[in-house]
Measured scan of single mutants.
Amino acid sequence: MATADDFKLIRDIHSTGGRRQVFGSREQKPFEDLVDLGWLKRSSVDSRATHYQITERGTSAAL
C-alpha cells in the first residue's frame, strides 16, 4: 500500500524528468518500494549506482 512519502517521492521524480540515479543500498529502499508498487522500474544497475525510470503507472500516481 502506498504511503504519503511514496506519493511525495514519485511527484519529485516526475517533476525532475522521470529518472533518478541512486548510490548506496540504504538510499535505494524508498525507490525499491516504488518498484514494488509498479511506479518505477530499474533501468540499469552498475557497481556504484542504480538507475530508476518512472513508469506510466508512476506518472498517473504523480498527477
Rank of each mutant, 00 (worst) to 15 (best):
A2F: 06
T59W: 06
R26S: 15
T16R: 09
S60M: 14
E27A: 13
L37C: 03
L34M: 03
I10L: 06
G17K: 05
L9K: 03
D46V: 06
H14Q: 09
T55Y: 01
F31Y: 15
S60K: 14
W39D: 01
T16C: 11
F7W: 10
T59L: 12
E27C: 15
R11V: 12
T55H: 01
R48C: 14
A4K: 10
H51P: 02
Q21L: 15
S44H: 15
K41Q: 11
S47K: 10
D36G: 11
A61K: 04
F23R: 12
G17T: 04
S25T: 13
F31W: 04
R42Y: 06
R11G: 05
G17E: 06
R42T: 07
R57E: 15
D33G: 09
Y52E: 01
F31H: 03
A4N: 09
L34T: 00
S43Q: 12
G24T: 07
S25H: 11
V35I: 07
K41W: 11
L40S: 00
R57W: 10
R11Y: 11
G24D: 12
V35G: 01
R20G: 04
M1K: 13
R57K: 15
T59I: 15
L9Y: 03
H14G: 03
I10S: 00
S15Y: 10
D12R: 08
S43Y: 12
L63T: 09
I10R: 01
S25F: 08
M1Y: 13
I13S: 00
D36P: 02
H14Y: 14
E32Y: 04
Q21R: 12
M1T: 12
T55W: 00
D46A: 07
D12P: 00
S47I: 10
T16G: 10
T59Q: 09
D6E: 07
W39F: 03
I54P: 01
T59H: 08
G38W: 02
S60R: 13
S60V: 13
L40I: 05
R57T: 14
H51N: 12
P30D: 05
Q21A: 13
E56K: 09
E56V: 09
G58F: 00
V45D: 08
Y52P: 01
G58V: 01
S44C: 15
Q28R: 11
I54L: 05
E56S: 10
R26V: 15
E56P: 12
Q53K: 07
T55R: 00
A49E: 12
L37E: 02
R26H: 15
L40F: 00
G58L: 00
V22A: 07
T55L: 03
A4G: 08
W39L: 02
G58I: 00
K29G: 08
P30A: 09
